[in-house]
């Protein structure tokens, strides 16, 4: 049975709770706990009948007294809340005052993601000139002069000594192979140029991330391995990958690489033209002629190379339907990729 001491204790607890309440809800809960129909004080008053008669009066009076005190204390605390809010003038739903963040262009983002992935696998990054010599852009990559394969690259020619705007970043491979120590493992991100009619699907400029590895005993299975690893990192787990034969003068054999469509998971949809596959890059084993031109023994050393079109991947990834948007720099476009 509660005595007077207990009543003092209850009062102390209640006042402490009120003092530390930080919201109106807290105070409401305190009110229910002590003064509610099943509250602490109510139940004391209900149990008075079980006390010896001499105690009933004193305990009853004390309980009623603290009931009034606690009630008043809660009311005044609630009041304080209302006053302090008005005084501080804070409306937390007003927008904060901040400087807007700028957006990194989606092309940078895709290139950075790719580089991060390959860098993690030990690929170093190399860059080269965008105005390139015919030798590095074509000849050193096994495009003989007047070869029909040159028609596949719609080339811009530049005034000067046999100069072109590079049609791919693979010339950096030729430059690196010429002077590097083997083994070598490099990716070459950068801007490339194609003399193509400008449309929603093609632009005179695009970006590439090319990569290659030359070492002893490199096989096409290694190429598959590294591309599977990249696709898992870049597109997520659960992708399947397919090699389709193709042709590039600087690789033999050459393949186009498809991944299972990440939108429909291979079932067929508009994005993959109902094939279930998306073409994402070209690859192959470095042609022995390319190694020979860099004075590398193509019997001892083999290598693979691959090239990824950045805009194409960005368009697939973000569902962008017009390649020209990348180069107009409309801030309403760029800021979508913040």
């Amino acid at each position: 049975m509660p005595g007077l001491k207990d009543i003092d204790k209850i009062k102390a607890q209640a006042l402490a709770a009120i003092a530390s309440a930080s919201t109106q809800d807290d105070l409401n809960n305190i009110s229910i706990k002590y003064l509610g129909r099943k509250g602490v004080i109510t139940s004391i008053l209900k149990s008075l009948k079980d006390l010896p008669i001499e105690q009933r009066k004193s305990v009853g009076a004390a309980a009623n007294k603290i009931k009034v005190e606690i009630d008043q204390e809660i009311k005044s605390a609630l009041n304080k809340f209302k006053i302090s809010r008005v005084k501080a003038g804070i409306d937390p739903t007003l927008p904060g005052i901040a400087r807007r963040l700028g957006a990194i262009h989606p092309i940078t983002q895709v290139i950075d993601d790719m580089c991060r992935s390959f860098h993690g696998m030990g690929f170093a990054i190399e860059r080269g000139p965008e105005v390139e010599t015919d030798y590095y852009n074509f000849e050193a990559l096994n495009f003989p002069p007047d070869h029909p394969a040159r028609d596949m690259q719609d080339t811009f020619y530049v005034e000067g000594n046999d100069l072109v705007l590079r049609t791919h970043t693979t010339p950096v491979q030729a430059r690196v192979l010429e002077k590097c120590k083997l083994p070598v493992k490099v990716i070459t991100p950068g801007k490339t140029y194609r003399n193509e009619e400008i449309s929603t699907r093609s632009y005179c400029v695009f970006h590439q991330v090319d990569g290659f590895l030359v070492d002893e005993g490199v096989t096409m299975a290694d190429l598959k391995g590294v591309l599977v690893a990249f696709c898992r990192d870049f597109f997520g787990e659960g992708m399947s990958l397919r090699f389709r034969p193709s042709y590039f003068p600087f690789t033999e054999p050459s393949v186009e690489v498809d991944i299972s469509c990440f939108l429909c998971r291979g079932k067929g949809c508009q994005l993959c033209k109902y094939s279930g596959w998306l073409e994402i890059l070209g690859a192959g084993m470095i042609d022995p002629n390319v190694l020979k031109m860099a004075d590398i023994d193509s019997e001892k050393y083999t290598g693979y190379a691959f090239g990824i079109g950045v805009e194409r991947i960005a368009m697939l990834k973000y569902g962008i339907n017009d390649i020209r948007l990348f180069y107009e720099n409309d801030i309403r476009f760029i800021r979508q990729f913040i």
Binding site: A124, P183, G217, A221, D222, R244, V255
Partner: peptide, 20 residues
């Protein structure tokens, strides 16, 4: 068929690349 080429996951060449 290129499907007959297995996936080999091993790290050939340099293990680490220095950030430029």
């Amino acid at each position: 068929g290129y499907d007959s080429i297995p996936f080999v996951e091993r790290n050939s060449g340099p293990l680490v690349a220095v950030t430029r």
